[in-house]
Computed example of a mutant assay.
Amino acid sequence: MSITLQNIWHLRRVADTASKACYICYKPSSSVLITPDNRDFFYVCPSHLKDRHFCSPIVDTEAVAAKAKEEALAREIEKVKREYEEKQQRKKNSEKEKAKKDDEKKKDGEGEDKDKAIEKERDEKIEELKKSGSAADDSPRVFALHKNFYQMRIDRMRNAEIARRNRQRLQDPSLFPSVPTGGL
């Protein structure tokens, strides 16, 4: 039985308390490269992932295009928000002037409180969007190992399979010859 293993590895993160030795340098690492079918995995330092002689990232062009489209949409939304805020500010200023003429004390106190509350909500929403945007950047990445490292992983799996078969054979009593019977 030949071992077939695709050279596609997904980067996953584990908790710092669950970190284990890096496959290359044996330092503790919380980054794991794992195959899509979960047949093989190993821990690796993030610095090794940047080494072009170890692995290379597999770029999903559709995902890159979608991300660029989202960024353009976000910029457009920010532009529209700014324009809307400017219009509201101009409208508010004109209303304040009218309000000052009518009832200066009553309108000014309520308007400033409302303005501060609206600005605070807007700032909180912006911060929330920034946090969710940074979390999206930590999404799993896909890599292809260099041919030598890939062959090492295949050899390791093949040797484990051979060792497993040998253990099974040694447990089988028909493997050994029987003791001779009969006469002396």
Rank of each mutant, 00 (worst) to 15 (best):
Leu170Lys: 14
Leu129Glu: 11
Pro28Thr: 08
Asp51Asn: 15
Glu127Thr: 05
Glu119Asp: 05
Asn148Gly: 08
Glu128Trp: 01
Lys147His: 11
Phe54Cys: 09
Gln151Thr: 06
Gln88Glu: 15
Gln89Met: 12
Asn148Trp: 03
Cys25Phe: 08
Lys147Pro: 15
Glu78Phe: 09
Asn38Ala: 13
Lys50Ser: 03
Pro57Asp: 08
Lys106Gly: 09
Gln168Trp: 06
Ala163Asp: 15
Gln6Ala: 11
Lys116Ile: 12
Cys22Ala: 05
Gln88Phe: 13
Pro46Ala: 07
Ser132Gly: 00
Glu71Ala: 06
Asp172Leu: 02
Asp60His: 07
Lys79Gly: 03
Asp172Phe: 02
Val179Ser: 14
Val32Ser: 10
Met1Ala: 10
Ile126Arg: 09
Ile34Tyr: 03
Ile77Lys: 14
Pro177Ala: 10
Cys55Ala: 15
Met157His: 14
Ile154Trp: 03
Ala65Gly: 00
Gln88Trp: 09
Arg164Gly: 06
Asp113Arg: 12
Arg39Pro: 02
Asp108Tyr: 07
Thr181Asn: 11
Gln6Glu: 14
Leu145Asp: 08
Lys107Cys: 13
Ser47Asn: 11
Arg158Thr: 14
Met1Cys: 07
Asp137Cys: 01
Ala63Glu: 11
Ala160Tyr: 01
Tyr43Glu: 03
Met152Val: 08
Gly133Arg: 11
Gln89Thr: 12
Met157Arg: 13
Ile126Met: 09
Lys125His: 08
Gly183Lys: 06
